[in-house]
Protein backbone atom coordinates (compact mmCIF):
# COMPACT_ATOMS: atom_id res chain seq x y z
CA UNK A 1 0.00 0.00 0.00
CA UNK A 2 1.43 3.34 -0.99
CA UNK A 3 1.73 6.24 1.45
CA UNK A 4 -0.77 8.26 -0.58
CA UNK A 5 -3.38 5.52 -0.30
CA UNK A 6 -2.91 5.28 3.48
CA UNK A 7 -3.34 9.05 3.84
CA UNK A 8 -6.43 8.92 1.65
CA UNK A 9 -7.95 6.07 3.69
CA UNK A 10 -7.37 7.91 6.99
CA UNK A 11 -8.91 11.09 5.58
CA UNK A 12 -11.84 9.15 4.10
CA UNK A 13 -12.56 7.47 7.43
CA UNK A 14 -12.43 10.86 9.21
CA UNK A 15 -14.72 12.44 6.62
CA UNK A 16 -17.29 9.63 6.73
CA UNK A 17 -17.17 9.34 10.52
CA UNK A 18 -17.63 13.10 10.87
CA UNK A 19 -20.56 13.05 8.44
CA UNK A 20 -22.22 10.18 10.30
CA UNK A 21 -21.60 11.87 13.66
CA UNK A 22 -23.16 15.07 12.27
CA UNK A 23 -26.36 13.20 11.43
CA UNK A 24 -26.52 11.25 14.70
CA UNK A 25 -25.55 14.02 17.13
CA UNK A 26 -28.45 15.28 19.24
CA UNK A 27 -26.86 18.71 19.80
CA UNK A 28 -26.94 21.02 16.78
CA UNK A 29 -23.73 22.81 17.80
CA UNK A 30 -21.89 19.48 17.75
CA UNK A 31 -23.53 18.68 14.41
CA UNK A 32 -22.17 21.92 12.98
CA UNK A 33 -18.70 21.17 14.36
CA UNK A 34 -18.71 17.66 12.87
CA UNK A 35 -19.72 19.12 9.53
CA UNK A 36 -16.75 21.53 9.74
CA UNK A 37 -14.49 18.56 10.49
CA UNK A 38 -15.89 16.84 7.41
CA UNK A 39 -15.21 19.93 5.24
CA UNK A 40 -11.63 20.16 6.48
CA UNK A 41 -10.97 16.43 5.87
CA UNK A 42 -12.27 16.84 2.31
CA UNK A 43 -10.12 19.95 1.85
CA UNK A 44 -7.05 17.94 2.84
CA UNK A 45 -8.06 15.29 0.28
CA UNK A 46 -8.10 18.07 -2.35
CA UNK A 47 -4.60 19.08 -1.18
CA UNK A 48 -3.29 15.54 -1.63
CA UNK A 49 -4.81 15.52 -5.13
CA UNK A 50 -2.74 18.58 -6.05
CA UNK A 51 -5.49 21.21 -5.96
CA UNK A 52 -4.43 23.65 -3.22
CA UNK A 53 -6.64 26.50 -4.49
CA UNK A 54 -9.79 24.38 -4.28
CA UNK A 55 -8.71 23.12 -0.84
CA UNK A 56 -8.19 26.62 0.58
CA UNK A 57 -11.37 27.93 -1.06
CA UNK A 58 -13.28 24.99 0.43
CA UNK A 59 -12.12 25.90 3.95
CA UNK A 60 -12.58 29.66 3.48
CA UNK A 61 -16.07 29.47 2.00
CA UNK A 62 -17.63 26.48 3.75
CA UNK A 63 -15.83 26.25 7.09
CA UNK A 64 -14.91 29.92 7.37
CA UNK A 65 -18.05 31.68 6.18
CA UNK A 66 -21.10 29.44 5.86
CA UNK A 67 -20.64 27.32 8.97
CA UNK A 68 -19.74 30.35 11.09
CA UNK A 69 -23.13 31.82 10.16
CA UNK A 70 -24.83 28.49 10.94
CA UNK A 71 -23.23 28.46 14.39
CA UNK A 72 -24.17 32.11 14.83
CA UNK A 73 -27.83 31.40 14.09
CA UNK A 74 -27.90 28.28 16.29
CA UNK A 75 -26.42 30.23 19.20
CA UNK A 76 -28.56 33.29 18.62
CA UNK A 77 -31.82 31.30 18.60
CA UNK A 78 -30.69 28.96 21.39
CA UNK A 79 -31.62 26.04 19.12
CA UNK A 80 -29.04 23.57 20.46
CA UNK A 81 -31.59 20.84 21.16
CA UNK A 82 -33.98 19.29 18.66
CA UNK A 83 -37.65 19.35 19.50
CA UNK A 84 -39.10 16.01 20.59
CA UNK A 85 -41.88 15.98 18.03
CA UNK A 86 -41.24 15.77 14.30
CA UNK A 87 -42.62 19.09 13.01
CA UNK A 88 -43.08 17.93 9.40
CA UNK A 89 -44.57 14.43 9.50
CA UNK A 90 -44.76 14.00 5.72
CA UNK A 91 -40.98 14.52 5.43
CA UNK A 92 -39.81 11.15 6.71
CA UNK A 93 -41.42 8.81 4.12
CA UNK A 94 -40.36 11.13 1.29
CA UNK A 95 -36.80 11.20 2.65
CA UNK A 96 -36.69 7.39 2.88
CA UNK A 97 -37.93 7.06 -0.72
CA UNK A 98 -35.42 9.57 -2.05
CA UNK A 99 -32.58 7.99 -0.05
CA UNK A 100 -33.41 4.53 -1.44
CA UNK A 101 -33.47 6.03 -4.93
CA UNK A 102 -30.01 7.54 -4.41
CA UNK A 103 -28.59 4.24 -3.12
CA UNK A 104 -30.10 2.39 -6.08
CA UNK A 105 -28.58 4.88 -8.47
CA UNK A 106 -25.16 4.52 -6.82
CA UNK A 107 -25.31 0.70 -6.99
CA UNK A 108 -26.40 0.83 -10.64
CA UNK A 109 -23.56 3.21 -11.53
CA UNK A 110 -21.07 1.02 -9.67
CA UNK A 111 -22.21 -2.16 -11.42
CA UNK A 112 -22.33 -0.72 -14.92
CA UNK A 113 -19.01 1.10 -14.64
CA UNK A 114 -16.97 -1.88 -13.39
CA UNK A 115 -14.06 -2.49 -15.73
CA UNK A 116 -14.33 0.86 -17.52
CA UNK A 117 -11.49 3.30 -17.34
CA UNK A 118 -10.89 5.01 -14.01
CA UNK A 119 -11.25 8.73 -13.69
CA UNK A 120 -7.97 10.53 -13.31
CA UNK A 121 -7.21 11.00 -9.61
CA UNK A 122 -4.70 13.78 -9.98
CA UNK A 123 -5.72 17.33 -10.72
CA UNK A 124 -4.62 18.97 -13.93
CA UNK A 125 -2.07 21.76 -14.00
CA UNK A 126 -4.88 24.35 -13.97
CA UNK A 127 -6.00 23.31 -10.49
CA UNK A 128 -2.64 24.07 -8.90
CA UNK A 129 -2.05 27.46 -10.50
CA UNK A 130 -4.45 30.24 -9.39
CA UNK A 131 -3.81 32.21 -12.60
CA UNK A 132 -4.73 29.30 -14.90
CA UNK A 133 -7.79 28.57 -12.76
CA UNK A 134 -8.92 32.20 -13.01
CA UNK A 135 -8.47 32.23 -16.79
CA UNK A 136 -10.51 29.02 -17.08
CA UNK A 137 -13.28 30.43 -14.86
CA UNK A 138 -13.57 33.63 -16.90
CA UNK A 139 -13.33 32.06 -20.37
CA UNK A 140 -14.42 28.44 -20.68
CA UNK A 141 -16.72 28.40 -17.65
CA UNK A 142 -17.83 32.04 -17.66
CA UNK A 143 -21.53 31.21 -18.20
CA UNK A 144 -21.91 28.90 -15.15
CA UNK A 145 -19.74 31.32 -13.18
CA UNK A 146 -22.04 34.27 -14.00
CA UNK A 147 -25.18 32.20 -13.35
CA UNK A 148 -23.81 31.29 -9.92
CA UNK A 149 -23.11 34.93 -9.15
CA UNK A 150 -26.66 35.91 -10.15
CA UNK A 151 -28.01 33.12 -7.93
CA UNK A 152 -26.04 34.49 -4.98
CA UNK A 153 -27.20 38.02 -5.76
CA UNK A 154 -30.83 36.83 -5.78
CA UNK A 155 -30.27 35.21 -2.39
CA UNK A 156 -28.78 38.42 -1.01
CA UNK A 157 -31.64 40.55 -2.37
CA UNK A 158 -34.10 38.02 -0.98
CA UNK A 159 -32.58 38.32 2.47
CA UNK A 160 -32.88 42.13 2.30
CA UNK A 161 -36.51 41.93 1.14
CA UNK A 162 -37.40 39.48 3.93
CA UNK A 163 -35.94 41.70 6.65
CA UNK A 164 -37.58 44.84 5.23
CA UNK A 165 -40.98 43.11 5.06
CA UNK A 166 -40.99 42.80 8.85
CA UNK A 167 -41.20 46.55 9.34
CA UNK A 168 -44.92 46.90 8.54
CA UNK A 169 -45.88 44.23 11.05
CA UNK A 170 -43.86 45.88 13.77
CA UNK A 171 -45.87 49.08 13.46
CA UNK A 172 -49.18 47.42 14.15
Amino acid sequence: MSAGLIVFLILAVIAIAAAAAMLLSSNTVYSALFLIMNFIAIAVIYLTLGAPFVALAQITVYAGAIMVLFLFVIMMLGAEKFSEKEPLTWQRPVAILLGLGLIGEGVYALLTRVGTQMLSNTATEAMADPKALGVLLYTKYSLPFEITSILLLVAAVGAVVLTRGGKKEEKQ
Partner: peptide
Protein backbone atom coordinates in the same frame (compact mmCIF):
# COMPACT_ATOMS: atom_id res chain seq x y z
CA UNK B 1 1.98 30.26 -4.51
CA UNK B 2 -1.27 30.79 -2.58
CA UNK B 3 0.24 32.50 0.47
CA UNK B 4 -2.26 35.35 0.65
CA UNK B 5 -5.21 32.98 0.24
CA UNK B 6 -3.76 30.82 3.02
CA UNK B 7 -3.74 33.85 5.32
CA UNK B 8 -7.39 34.60 4.52
CA UNK B 9 -8.30 30.94 5.07
CA UNK B 10 -6.67 30.82 8.48
CA UNK B 11 -8.26 34.17 9.40
CA UNK B 12 -11.68 32.89 8.42
CA UNK B 13 -11.47 29.86 10.73
CA UNK B 14 -9.92 31.74 13.65
CA UNK B 15 -13.35 33.01 14.74
CA UNK B 16 -14.46 29.54 15.92
CA UNK B 17 -12.47 29.48 19.15
CA UNK B 18 -14.00 32.73 20.40
CA UNK B 19 -17.53 31.82 19.27
Amino acid sequence: NLGALYILTVTSISVYGIT
